[in-house]
Design a binder for these strands. Structure first.
Lengths: 206, 206
DNA sequence: CGTATTGGATACGTTCGTGTATCGAACGTT
DNA sequence: AACGTTCGATACACGAACGTATCCAATACG
């Protein structure tokens, strides 16, 4: 008889269904307009189920966000790791182009970020995520660049630049759903930034 | 006796007070959690005043947003126009660094953008703003670059890249309030992008 | 200076979401 | 197979925000 939460299989299932529903509803209704009731009905439960699994909507959101956030980082990391020892620039460009542009996830993240700016504790959560993105993605980028014969000059600066470009261009792509130009410009900007923050390794280096 | 809205001086004053209050409250409470009541009490009115000036909270928000948005664009344009015929790179860099990073405005815009992705009409509003930014800012940038001896290769691409970098780095600066590094990185990235999308004009050009 | 009109305040009924307290049913353990 | 435990449903009381309908006061106009 565990003291806090037994966490049986059944419990885990409904918890996950609530988490999944949360992403959908938060994306559809918006961060501030989301209610406990709608999340529950989306998950096929009543509020009773919710209150026996979470204590507040904030708690549910945070749990959902952490889960999805780490999953996203893993996805990106995997996509970039796949570059391996292929052809030079094009493989890298293709890998960057494969980074998913997810409508629902963007909305949730953007609104949560805005919200986090009001709350020191949440701001720390966002800062931590930024760090974990850097930690997970940068090594892979550096390695991929090395395979194309380039050495990164300032890793931290490159990391932040890539995140900024990613975030900034994601909106543009989403706002122009049927304009392929946006995606192309995005990829080009990614490559330009990679280029700006690295130098070719020549034979006489070092 | 005008048919629609007489728009007397008194009316205009309370309208403006409501618009000003709207920015504050939307920034503080968030897009979804903002209520008519709070906006009114912030402006020093009751709901009666509101409903005799606007028909819905959405209408108030849009009016406020258009007003502020064009004001912001004008500010940026003015800041960049000031580069005039000064010293080369540094003046441009200083001008870019002077672009305001406004906490409240960022929150409002970010949340509104997320919301606009759900509504075709609003999405068009955002797209129009993007265009007006390009139209207002690009010529000034191109001119400033020309004074430093550089010619822009792809104006549209540069415009979108600058907006993306602006948006992406603004969050980073706001999330790290007391870290000067973020601002410096921001400026550096701006300059790198300007550099990537332009070439030096040499004597043998053309 | 007086009167008509407009702008904003007050009062009201309604809807919607919340959180708690209670109850019934599915689970798994021996 | 029976029984105790846990999970989720149902019922309830409360509060918040909305939008309208009505009323009083400030303003503009003759």
């Amino acid at each position: 008889m565990p003291a806090a939460t037994p966490l049986t299989a059944r419990r885990a299932r409904t918890r996950q269904r609530l988490l999944d529903a949360a992403l959908d509803v938060f994306a559809e209704e918006g961060f501030g307009r989301t209610t406990v009731e709608r999340v529950c009905e989306r998950a096929g439960f009543t509020r009773g189920a919710f209150y026996s699994n979470f204590t507040s909507l904030d708690e549910l959101f945070l749990a959902m966000w952490e889960q999805r956030s780490t999953a996203m980082v893993d996805d990106v990391r995997a996509a970039l790791a796949g570059v391996a020892d292929g052809s030079p620039d094009d493989a890298l460009r293709a890998a960057l182009a494969a980074i998913p542009v997810d409508d629902a996830w963007y909305r949730v993240t953007a609104e949560f970020t805005a919200h986090a700016l009001r709350n020191p504790a949440l701001r720390r959560v966002m800062a931590a995520r930024e760090r974990s993105i850097q930690d997970a993605v940068l090594p892979v980028i550096v390695a991929a660049l090395a395979r194309t014969g380039r050495r990164v000059t300032d890793e931290a600066a490159l990391g932040h630049a890539l995140v900024a470009v990613h975030d900034g261009t994601t909106v543009q792509v989403l706002l122009e759903p049927d304009d392929a130009t946006a995606r192309i410009r995005r990829e080009a900007l990614f490559m330009n930034v990679l280029h700006a923050y690295s130098t070719p390794i020549t034979a006489d280096d070092r």
